Simulated scan of single mutants.
Amino acid sequence: MTNDYLIPLPDLCTQYEMEMSFFINLEEYGLIEFISVEETYFIHKDHIVNLEKILRLHQELNLNLEGIDTVFNLLHKIDILKTELNDVKNRLRRYENE
């Protein structure tokens, strides 16, 4: 993993106009994961999409960490159910076509 894919935490604070403590709380709650390199925390660029979702939920809907965690858990369950539903539909099509 090269540093081209890592974004420093201080840059995130500046970009999103958020306190560093907010990002630390997100990590402590398990909502994001930081990588530590020489006493500086970084986030992988692939996780920015989820971070932006978290920030929108927090800023626009005024959700706390527990609310954000609940929303992410529900979205994950919806994805699982969609996959299962597609699998069942595909199996049903096979039986209907026989």
Rank of each mutant, 00 (worst) to 15 (best):
V71S: 06
F23M: 05
D69H: 07
E17M: 08
L51K: 05
D4Y: 06
F72G: 02
L74W: 11
H58K: 06
I24A: 06
T40Y: 07
N3F: 15
S36D: 12
P8V: 11
S36T: 12
F23K: 03
K53A: 04
L61K: 09
E60V: 00
I7R: 04
L26A: 02
N3E: 15
E38R: 05
L61A: 14
H47A: 11
L75Y: 10
S21G: 00
I43K: 01
H58N: 10
V49A: 08
I35F: 13
L74E: 10
L26I: 09
F72I: 09
E60L: 06
N64E: 05
D69Q: 13
K45M: 07
I43C: 04
L61C: 10
V71Q: 07
Y5V: 05
R56M: 01
I68K: 08
P10F: 10
Q59Y: 08
N50S: 13
N50K: 08
N50L: 10
G30E: 04
E33Y: 14
N25K: 12
G30C: 02
E33S: 15
D69Y: 07
L31E: 03
C13R: 01
H47Y: 05
H47Q: 11
L65H: 05
P10R: 04
E27D: 10
H58C: 00
L57D: 04
I35P: 01
L12I: 04
S21K: 13
N3K: 14
D69A: 12
L12W: 02
L26G: 03
E33Q: 15
E52V: 03
I32W: 02
V37I: 15
L26N: 08
I24E: 09
F22I: 12
T40P: 00
V37L: 15
E17V: 08
